[in-house]
Write a protein that binds this DNA or RNA. Structure first.
Length: 409
RNA sequence: CUGGGUGUGGCGCAGUUGGUAGCGCGCGACUUUUGGGAAGUCGAGGCCGCUGGUUCAAGUCCAGUCACCCAGACCA
């Protein structure tokens, strides 16, 4: 991508309605644009980060046999009424609207009911199971208060996975596979050493569930953890019997704040029962399908990563989710000619600042935008037969030969 | 929803006892600059959130309303 050809511009100061670090930096660097409280647009660079995150999630889920689908956003109230969840008393964050022709609709806050309806024709026999389907989709939740940049929106991007099983054992088996896949996902996006599987309340889904919490000062949740962090639990389940189950005492736990980046639940019959999702067993009897559901907040994850690694100069993306690998700057006639060549040969990996500006401004923008390697090719460096590579994360600069640049790790 | 705060060019802000709006950044043109956010000259750009009221006159006073931010409550 050429900076001169993209419409984005950087801002020296954040708009005053963006006070959260993630929102402020992502806005200043041109990744997102706010429509209203809790509602954001993703600009070219932001969309690239989202796609990188989705790519990692997709790879890990496909690796454990999941199939990607895309369900609708508009919701028919009928299946929701069968589970009691269309009621505003039961679920108080619905966005509802009406058909011109008459009749109410909802904007999906989650997808258990519709995914069950969708899968019904395909689940008739034990031979059809297990099945795992997931999607990346925009969810709508009419939160009383949106806040913290893209960490808590009214419209946000989520990956939701639903599993269908013939037995509780098989649900347990797959649940454990998802736990491992999630650990690999958070490792790959750079949050491995700050994200912990956390024992939590199951909300309306189940008594207990597991969350993946990234320790973060601006996180909304309070969690407790022991010295080696082998036990992490949400404040909402800090109860004597839970502590006893987990074999820890209150005294050995410390408190911190964290952002919930994922939540997984064993639904069992919670929704399959009221919606009548059944299969025929080997001995020809009808049996209700066991289910699990597993979410990852994709746009929130982007915000958490932005928030977690940013420094006083700007964003710092882990390589795996950065919109590009190289932030390229050419200086001088020969430097620019070589930069052009490198860009043309590696367009997918290079954000090329070809604007007609002084270098100081380009350097400042490179730091703000946060791409892992800043590459400077100038007449001066070329005279030595090298280019300068500065790591955004550490700020350290090394000189390497131009022909080695493409192999940088 | 409760409490607090804020709405003035694209962004950040100022605007006194009411008298018809200004600064910095950014933007356009030209000149000089050119490895860390350059300098000069000229210039464009504003229903002062919205409605109503008071007044000869409202960005400024009054009432209402909307939006946004923060804290809390809530959060499948």
């Amino acid at each position: 991508m050429r900076f001169s050809k993209t419409f984005i511009k950087t801002l020296r100061e954040a708009p005053k309605d963006e006070t959260a670090k993630n929102g402020a930096l992502l806005t200043r660097a041109g990744y997102i644009h706010k429509e209203m409280a809790g509602v954001y647009d993703f600009l070219p660079l932001g969309l690239l980060v989202i796609e990188k995150i989705k790519g990692i999630v997709r790879e890990e889920l496909n690796a454990i046999g999941c199939e990607e689908v895309l369900l609708s956003t508009l919701q028919n109230p009928e299946p929701w009424e069968k589970t009691g969840r269309f009621s505003n008393q039961e679920v108080d964050i619905w966005f509802k609207t009406e058909l011109s022709a008459g009749g109410e609709l909802g904007l999906a806050p989650t997808h258990e009911e519709p995914v069950i309806e969708m899968m019904k024709p395909y689940i008739t026999s034990y031979k059809d199971l297990p099945l795992y389907v997931y999607q990346f989709q925009t969810k709508f939740r009419n939160e009383l208060r949106a806040k913290s940049g893209i960490l808590r929106g009214r419209e946000f991007l989520m990956k939701d996975l639903y599993s269908f099983h013939t037995s509780e054992e098989d649900l347990d088996r797959f649940y454990a596979e998802v736990e491992e896949a999630y650990k690999r996902i958070f490792e790959r996006v750079g949050l491995g050493d700050s994200t912990y599987e956390t024992f939590a309340s199951g909300g309306i889904f189940s008594k207990y569930s597991h969350e993946f919490q990234t320790f973060l000062p601006v996180g909304e949740d309070t969690v407790y953890y022991n010295a080696d962090k082998s036990v992490v639990l949400n404040k909402e389940v800090l109860e004597p019997e839970v502590l006893a189950d987990l074999k820890v005492s209150r005294e050995e736990l410390s408190e911190t704040t964290a952002a919930e980046v994922a939540n997984i639940f064993k639904l069992k019959f919670k929704y399959s029962e009221p919606l009548g999702l059944k299969f025929v067993t080997e001995d020809n009897s009808a049996q209700t399908v066991y289910m699990g559901c597993y979410g990852i907040g994709i746009s929130r994850l982007m915000g958490v990563i932005a928030e977690k690694f940013a420094d006083e100069k700007g964003l710092v993306w882990p390589k795996t989710v950065a919109p590009f690998k190289y932030h390229l700057i050419g200086i001088g006639e020969k430097g620019i000619a070589e930069a052009e060549k490198f860009y043309e040969a590696h367009t997918d990996e290079v954000f090329y600042d070809d604007r007609d500006l002084r270098v100081g401004e380009k350097f400042a923008d490179a730091e703000l935008i946060g791409i892992p390697y800043r590459v400077v090719i100038s007449d001066k460096t070329l005279a030595e037969g090298v280019v300068e590579v500065t790591k955004r994360e550490t700020g350290e600069t090394q000189k390497i030969r131009l022909d080695e640049l493409a192999n940088l790790e």
